[in-house]
């Protein structure tokens, strides 16, 4: 672990047929500090039969996520994912706080930094900056309120210098670019 700053974005895509993952650690300006990705995993027919319904979970959590987290050198202060299924394993394996962020269509909250609970458990709205709709934040069950407040504070700080959901798009573009480069 080289240092402990910035935000870590992690995404795992695909289903039981084909799964791959990537993570991008950026500083608060969005400048990359670490980027790792996996090749697609293609389970054989025998493996699908042997693992059954547990295959997806095993691939995502035990293989892809664990491998990515083991490989990363610039560990972030907060892991950000775009899949609710990753919250629990990220919290357990990632050793630092984890949150799912997604845009909302709600009206802006009172002021930058405002956080509001929703009807869903462990889901909040955060007004991270003054130039967008509130972000929807979801935490793993059992996340303490002080961890939620700390995560929200980190996101508000970073939103002052970068766009919080943008790195996910960059990961997708990078993966497409790397895939096409490999094919060529």
């Amino acid at each position: 672990m080289a240092n402990n700053s910035g935000l870590g974005y992690i995404t795992i895509e695909g289903n039981e047929g084909l799964i791959r993952g990537a993570l991008l650690v950026v500083d608060v300006r969005g400048i990359p500090m670490d980027f790792r990705y996996t090749d697609y995993i293609r389970p054989t027919k025998l493996e699908r039969i042997l693992y059954g319904n547990a295959l997806d979970t095993y691939l995502k959590e035990e293989l892809v996520l664990q491998s990515l987290l083991d490989a990363v050198e610039a560990e972030p202060q907060l892991w950000i994912c775009n899949d609710a299924e990753l919250l629990d394993p990220l919290k357990n394996i990632g050793r630092v706080k984890a949150v799912l962020i997604s845009p909302s269509t709600r009206q802006p909250l009172e002021s930058v930094g405002s956080i509001e609970s929703t009807s869903e458990p462990n889901v909040f709205l955060l007004q991270a900056d003054g130039v967008s709709a509130p972000l929807r934040l979801a935490f793993a069950a059992g996340t303490r309120s002080d961890e939620i407040q700390n995560s929200a504070a980190l996101l508000v700080e970073a939103a002052g210098t970068m766009e919080l959901t943008e790195p996910f798009m960059r990961i997708q573009k990078a993966l497409s670019s790397l895939a096409s480069g490999t094919e060529a």
Partner: peptide
């Protein structure tokens, strides 16, 4: 089931622009 080590592509992604 096992997979190969994740690859490091920091050099490639650092060349990519951010989008606002």
């Amino acid at each position: 089931l096992k997979m190969s080590q994740p690859k490091n592509a920091l050099k490639q992604i650092i060349m990519m622009p951010q989008e606002r």
